[in-house]
Design a protein around this nucleic acid. Structure first.
Length: 581
RNA sequence: GCUGUUGUAGCUCAGUCGGUAGAGCACUUCCUUGGUAAGGAAGAGGUUCGGCAGUUCAAUCCUGCUCAACAGCUCCA
């Protein structure tokens, strides 16, 4: 690969490039702190890292120092030489260098594995390669952060220091990448949420978000949309309690498999649990009466608020919280209806994601290694049904081994936002176990009792998180139907306030969310504020507009769109909102 | 939960090598009636610097504990 022009779009070459950079990082660290012990240092999606065990705690200044040292190594143009050693000699070499982690790695390599090393200057690292030919191939490097990481990713092991960095064939490309990171920061829903006054999280309730008036508008619009679409597709809506007797959670298997994530409470000395999932409640709803095979499929939707004890370090704005609302549904059905129902949900999810302009991919998550209920036979049946449904839809999917829920396998929908990040949102889970545990029954054509099959599914996943994702996806510039403020009228002077109020009333009369900025401020100032608020349409009202009964309009994405008659504008808004344009 | 960093006015931040704190924006009042990203002036605003202890004549600044946020790990909608 050395001779050809460096192709950074080729994943393999890019990884070799970053991997070499991580070796340079390791060498630089060893030059500065010879007592440092090296663990592993792979290339990752947008760069590389190296895990290092060292008493001294790296600071930001240290990163600069290390970067400088790395640049020296790059400049020196040291060739990377590969060599192999028999196991004993390999162990001896690493033991001599006090590289305990490398010794452990070698010991864990399979018997027949070739043990290879890469050497640059006087630095040697256990490594399978590949690498670029010499250190001077690396042109631009940046160490981005240092953080703790467990040896071998196991929280029982020692915490090492992980230095993250990235590298590119030119400074321009590195700068571009860093600019992209900046863009993502600008879109951070926590920042935009504060600026737009959408939601807030206080110290008094870590992981328990408050929705503010503007945020509630988005939330209510999403829920309204959700209800309309579910009604169209034959769903009924239910609401089940937040707190239910602990016994129920033993029946469902949650107590055995999920109790670490649950909150418990007592009522009159009886043990109760706060629901972490909605299914047991839905089970009780099903069991309230005897069902006939003619009733199926039964589709029960629920915007169900759940509470889960997440680790404090995992909390993140609206994306990871301790209480959230799942746009849940439980579909009870006959075995022969399974595939059609799954396909129906897939179509539903496709419809919803497309509306927001999301692309997505599907992952099939199979039975967990340990924590699961039910028989292997049923797991296989359920997994096959999901697989066949996706395949019959002609959709691609990847398999995610062992990542299923404890009660069944699932199809996960990972959507991609406007700057290329992916989020797991929708999931379809097929469940034979819960109906079994709750002893669900129906009377079949033969007059005998049978057991129905169940689907658990969500489209948004969590309303809170979906709002967070939408905020970043649109950078706060929500589509008209979701925008907290759809139109803001700015008066040039107070002479035009009566006209502005009249226009506002006309728009409000047809349900448009409109605000008037009639403050005694200059138009440029009002405009700046309205833009920062990311309102969809800004209308400036002055002499001209009053004369002609028009509005001078600016759209938050399209920019200046000129003048338009009030009635015409009103009709356009009503139509666009209706079409969710 | 773990490792590291941070925590000062509603927001964004400065500051004190220990002697009881400041800027800009926002807010209030006044002047200004101004056409596409900040017109001017004055004023108010911190139970005093996340909380609790400790060291000290004296702590926002030092020490310990604790809470929260941020980055990453682990986990996950």
């Amino acid at each position: 690969m050395a001779k050809e022009k460096f192709d950074f779009t080729n994943e393999e070459m890019r990884n070799a490039y970053r991997h070499t950079t991580s070796h340079i990082l390791a060498q630089a660290v060893k030059n500065l702190w010879p007592e440092a012990k090296l663990a592993i240092g792979p290339a990752i999606e947008n760069g590389f890292y190296y895990d290092i065990d060292l008493e001294h705690k790296f600071t930001d200044d240290d990163l600069k120092k290390i970067e400088k040292e790395m640049k020296k190594i790059m400049k020196a143009g040291l060739p990377l030489e590969r060599f192999e050693l028999p196991r004993e000699e390999a162990l001896k070499l690493m033991a001599e260098k006090n590289e305990d982690y490398k010794v452990e790695l070698i010991n864990d390599l399979p018997e027949d594995e070739v043990i290879s090393f890469y050497k640059q200057g006087d630095f040697v690292d256990l490594c399978a390669g590949p690498h670029v030919e010499k250190t001077s191939v690396i042109k631009a490097v940046k160490l981005t952060s240092v953080a703790g990481a467990y040896w071998r990713g196991d929280s029982n092991n020692k915490m090492l220091q992980r230095i993250y960095g990235t590298s590119f064939p030119s400074q321009e490309e590195l700068d571009q990448y860093l600019a992209k990171i900046e863009e993502a920061k600008k879109r951070d829903h926590r920042k935009i949420g504060k600026e737009m006054d959408l939601f807030a999280i206080y110290e008094e309730g870590p992981g328990f978000p408050f929705f503010l008036p503007k945020g509630m508008i988005i939330r209510n619009e999403l829920e309204k949309f959700w209800r309309e679409e579910h009604k169209k597709r034959g769903y009924e809506e239910i609401k089940t309690p937040l707190i239910l007797n602990e016994q129920l959670w033993h029946t469902s298997g949650h107590w055995d498999n999920y109790k670490d994530n649950m909150y418990f409470t007592k009522i009159d000395d009886e043990d109760y649990a706060i629901k972490p999932m909605n299914c047991p409640g839905a089970m009780l709803v099903y069991k309230r009466k005897m069902h006939s095979y003619r009733d199926f499929p039964i589709r029960m939707g629920e915007l169900g608020q759940v509470h889960r004890h997440e680790l404090s370090g995992a909390l993140h704005g609206l994306m990871r919280v301790r209480t959230f609302t799942q746009d849940d549904a439980h579909i009870l059905m006959l075995p022969e209806q399974i595939k059609d129902e799954i396909k129906g949900v897939i179509d539903f999810i496709d419809y919803v994601y497309s509306l927001f302009g999301f692309k997505y991919h599907i992952e099939l998550s199979t039975r967990p290694e340990e924590k699961y209920i039910g028989t292997l036979d049923l797991w296989e049946k359920a997994t096959d049904a999901l697989r066949e449904a996706v395949e019959e839809k002609g959709m691609d999917y990847i398999v995610n081994e062992g990542d299923g829920a404890f009660y069944g396998p699932k199809l996960d929908f990972h959507l991609e936002d406007s700057i290329g990040r992916t989020w797991q949102c929708g999931t379809i889970q097929l469940d034979y176990m819960m109906p079994e545990r709750f002893n669900l029954e129906y009377i079949g054509k033969d007059g005998e009792k049978h057991r129905p099959v169940m689907i658990h599914r969500v489209l948004f996943g969590s309303i809170e998180r979906f709002i967070g994702i939408l905020t970043e996806h649109y950078a706060g510039k929500f589509p008209l139907w979701l925008a907290p403020v759809q139109v803001k009228l700015l008066t040039v002077t107070d002479k035009f306030v009566p006209y502005a109020k009249e226009v506002a009333e006309k728009l409000e009369a047809v349900g448009i969310r409109v605000e008037v900025d009639d403050r005694n401020e200059k138009i440029g100032y009002k405009l700046r504020e309205a833009r920062n608020e990311r309102v969809t349409y800004i209308a400036v009202i002055g002499e001209r507009e009053v004369e002609a009964n028009t509005l001078s309009l600016r759209h938050n994405v399209q920019g200046d769109i000129g003048e338009m008659g009030v009635e015409e504008f009103k009709a356009k808004l009503v139509e666009d909102i209706e079409n969710k344009a």
